[in-house]
Amino acid sequence: MTVISQLSSSLGQKGNDANIALAKEIAETENSYAIKELVQNLGNKDKKYKQIV
């Protein structure tokens, strides 16, 4: 599962609870891949995300 698919907006949820939980998990595990994926998609206006290759 990609990090983008775990965001509140991707899950169809309102609010930031899923985003906050995801941020804590990424910080605790120091998941650099997840951080790169999020940064790569910051300016992405398309609902489809870009995967890191």
Rank of each mutant, 00 (worst) to 15 (best):
A21K: 15
S8V: 03
K50C: 04
T29A: 14
M1C: 08
K47S: 07
A27W: 10
G15L: 05
E37N: 08
V39M: 09
N31Y: 00
L11E: 11
G43C: 06
V39D: 05
N44F: 11
K47M: 10
S32Q: 14
Y49Q: 09
M1D: 06
S8M: 01
G43S: 10
Q6T: 03
L42D: 07
T2E: 10
S10K: 14
A18G: 01
Y33T: 12
V3W: 00
N19H: 00
L7F: 06
A23S: 10
Q13G: 05
V3K: 00
L42F: 11
S5D: 15
V39T: 05
M1Y: 12
K50N: 09
K48E: 13
K47G: 13
K14I: 15
D17F: 02
V3P: 07
D46W: 07
L7N: 04
Y49V: 12
G12N: 13
K36G: 03
S32H: 05
Y49A: 11
I20K: 13
V53T: 13
I52S: 04
I35G: 02
L42V: 12
Y33I: 07
A27T: 10
A21N: 11
I4E: 06
D46A: 05
E28Q: 15
A27F: 12
E37K: 10
A27V: 09
Q40F: 13
I52K: 08
V3Q: 07
E28P: 07
Y33K: 15
K14S: 15
K36R: 13
V39E: 05
I4K: 04
Q13R: 13
E25V: 05
A23V: 10
S9V: 15
E37C: 04
N44K: 08
N16A: 06
E25A: 12
L38H: 04
